[in-house]
Amino acid sequence: MIRATVDRAFAPTRGVLAEAGEMVILTGRTIVSAVRPPYAYGAELAAQFMFALRLCWLPLLIATVAFGYEAPGLQAANFLVLFGALDRLGGFFVLASIREFAPFVDAIVLAGVAGTAITADLGARRIREELDALEVLGVDPVKSLVVPRFLALMLVTGLFDIYALVFGVFGGVLATLVNNEPLGPFWATFFNNATTTDLWGSVVKTTLFGAIIAVVCCYKGMTASGGAEGVGRAVNQAVVITFLAIFAFNYVFTQVLLATHPALTTIVK
């Protein structure tokens, strides 16, 4: 009786945990089959890389410039102008754009644009029994479909981070210009605060974001069920889970990075 009640109460939790566990297993299988020869996924990797690039470059450009200009740009500038300290906007952009906003916008755009496309594609293949057909024809879908998407998304998200932070900082430049200030002090405080740790930290973080997006979106696509409606549900869940996972992982990553590199916590004049 007690057992049954407890089981009922925790049934949803168990579902969530089981799903999270399966995603971890998929991650493990993906890494193992990516490393183990043969490496026949090269063509698909290139195709997926180009696909994500083609799909994401414009949305990411618009999102980063607009977000950089508006949130850390205009809002922070309004605040800094109070103290006559708008030159510090450059230094603030190292914190804001390089460490947080660029990776964030990068991950969100990649998940929303490329990740959903992956879930929809794999989900449709699951529904059309193409994935079953692959397995019956003796081809491992993890190796032939998940591995190239996993590697391509890690690569693309990592590289797009640099693209995103360049345009994010461009947003800051715009905000400075709008306030009729010279750019010299902006760049001075920017480069005083920017370190290589900031850059690699940002790139490593987004590369791992890419891995999270790929695993969650592939998992949701490959386990879709229930016809066209099921594919829609899978896409929806994939986006929600990806965002939650990215937010959670970002917190852990930032804490670890700050704890292991205390120099990052000091603001340089």
Binding site: R128, E129, E130, D132, A133, L134, E135, V136, G138
Partner: peptide, 14 residues
């Protein structure tokens, strides 16, 4: 599985 040929309901073509 190489012993098998399987025709799926809708063909399951790629």
């Amino acid at each position: 599985r190489k012993k098998f040929g399987l025709l799926f309901q809708d063909g399951a073509l790629f």
